[in-house]
Amino acid sequence: MSNSKVVDNMTSIASRRSNHVKEPRKIFSIPYGVFLVLFIIFPILLIFFYAFTNKEGNFTLDNFKSLFVNGQASSTLKVIGTSLGVAALTTVICIIIAYPIAYILANSKFNKNKVLVYLFLLPMWINFVIRTIATKQILEFIGLDSKMYPWICSIIGMVYNYLPFTILPLYNTMLKLDKSQIEAAADLGANPVHVFFKTIVPMTIPGIVSASTMTFMPTMSSYVITDALSNRTIQLIGKQIESKFMLDQLNVGSVYAIIMLILIGASVIIENIFSEKKGAR
């Protein structure tokens, strides 16, 4: 009886003490919380407010109408389609190129130290606009003029810029690859193609998913590269937002931003589905 009372007492003291230790530290999160609300959450809510109002702040659907009614729908849908197309193409090409690179870099047989990995990341430190200009000039030098081949040039520029972002997540997952499984598959008679598709690929799905999102999302919105390498003929959603910003049409720009947010939401959901599948196995 008295024993349990002592224990009770002790736990209450201990819990009070730990509370006393922990409580005041919470206040450190307040400035950060204020920043998050003021400069990240509130501005996104404002986008929705602006999309549904006119310049005077009155409710209107005109901003949506200007994009989807009176024959504008086809050009708006074309912009969305082009953005998705460029992003998808860039992502697929990036993964096809980055996958073997990441595999080789993560394999200690090929790459004993991290120097090669650093070498792939080093160009990222040169300003990407300068790199894009350099790409444009070298493409012109080998006869790929951005006026004549806007699509080829833009995709090359995109792949060139986003390749390190694709390599890194893939490399990180491949470092954790269970090599004994691969060896076991090979020893048990699986041919190299089977080894690749039945053991290596399934084990690296999380890396493929995160590399895809790392590439897909920014590609859709980055208009600098397509501007430079397609001579402004390829119009992405990002470009539309920028031109509406330049024309001071923030309300219409907000509608494009909402479209963008919907696409982002969709890709986050798709990413989650894939990583959950992996987790369930």
């Binding site: 501005p43 923030l250 963008m260 947010l261």
Partner: peptide, 27 residues
């Protein structure tokens, strides 16, 4: 909740964040 809010700028397109800030300052 904090973690979720922290993820927003990482996941969000940079151009949407940029526009939202311009709108905030205009507002």
């Amino acid at each position: 909740a904090f973690n979720l809010a922290t993820q927003i700028p990482i996941v969000n397109a940079e151009i949407v964040m940029a526009l939202s800030l311009v709108i905030l300052f205009a507002f």
